[in-house]
Amino acid sequence: MGRHRRGARREVTVADLIDALRRYPADMEVRLATQPRMPLEHTVGGVAEADGMVWIGELRQEGYAPDEVSERLGWR
Results as ranks from 00 to 15, higher is better:
7 G>W: 06
25 P>Q: 11
33 A>I: 07
55 W>K: 09
37 R>W: 02
21 L>I: 15
74 G>Y: 10
6 R>E: 05
54 V>A: 12
56 I>H: 01
2 G>P: 01
34 T>I: 15
32 L>F: 12
69 V>H: 05
53 M>F: 06
6 R>S: 08
46 G>F: 02
12 V>H: 02
40 L>P: 02
5 R>E: 10
39 P>I: 07
10 R>F: 12
57 G>C: 09
44 V>N: 08
68 E>C: 04
31 R>G: 00
56 I>R: 00
40 L>M: 00
12 V>Q: 05
30 V>N: 01
26 A>S: 15
21 L>E: 12
38 M>K: 03
75 W>V: 07
67 D>P: 03
13 T>I: 12
13 T>Y: 03
49 E>R: 08
74 G>Q: 02
59 L>Q: 11
4 H>A: 05
17 L>K: 06
7 G>T: 10
62 E>A: 07
57 G>Q: 10
71 E>G: 07
56 I>L: 14
3 R>Q: 03
31 R>D: 03
13 T>E: 08
17 L>G: 00
12 V>P: 00
41 E>R: 03
12 V>L: 04
30 V>M: 10
34 T>Y: 06
22 R>K: 15
22 R>W: 08
27 D>N: 06
20 A>W: 07
31 R>N: 05
15 A>E: 12
32 L>T: 04
9 R>F: 13
76 R>P: 07
26 A>G: 11
40 L>S: 04
28 M>W: 15
13 T>A: 10
41 E>M: 04
22 R>T: 15
28 M>Y: 12
8 A>D: 13
35 Q>N: 14
6 R>W: 11
74 G>L: 07
48 A>R: 14
62 E>F: 13
69 V>C: 06
54 V>E: 04
15 A>L: 12
66 P>I: 15
75 W>S: 07
27 D>P: 02
30 V>E: 09
29 E>M: 05
49 E>M: 13
68 E>K: 11
15 A>G: 09
30 V>Y: 09
55 W>P: 06
70 S>G: 12
75 W>N: 03
18 I>G: 02
37 R>K: 14
41 E>L: 08
73 L>G: 01
69 V>Y: 02
64 Y>R: 11
45 G>Y: 06
44 V>L: 03
6 R>K: 10
41 E>D: 07
20 A>Y: 09
48 A>P: 01
2 G>E: 08
26 A>E: 10
12 V>W: 04
28 M>T: 15
27 D>T: 05
14 V>L: 10
46 G>Y: 09
3 R>F: 15
19 D>F: 01
50 A>V: 13
24 Y>I: 08
60 R>W: 02
29 E>G: 04
72 R>K: 15
45 G>D: 10
37 R>Y: 06
74 G>I: 13
42 H>I: 13
60 R>C: 01
13 T>M: 06
65 A>I: 02
51 D>E: 09
62 E>L: 11
10 R>I: 15
36 P>I: 04
46 G>P: 01
27 D>Y: 05
68 E>G: 06
54 V>P: 00
38 M>C: 08
57 G>D: 02
14 V>A: 11
54 V>G: 01
67 D>N: 09
45 G>T: 06
56 I>W: 08
61 Q>W: 14
63 G>F: 05
50 A>D: 00
52 G>E: 05
45 G>P: 00
75 W>D: 01
42 H>E: 01
34 T>N: 12
51 D>N: 00
32 L>A: 02
31 R>E: 07
25 P>R: 09
4 H>V: 09
32 L>W: 01
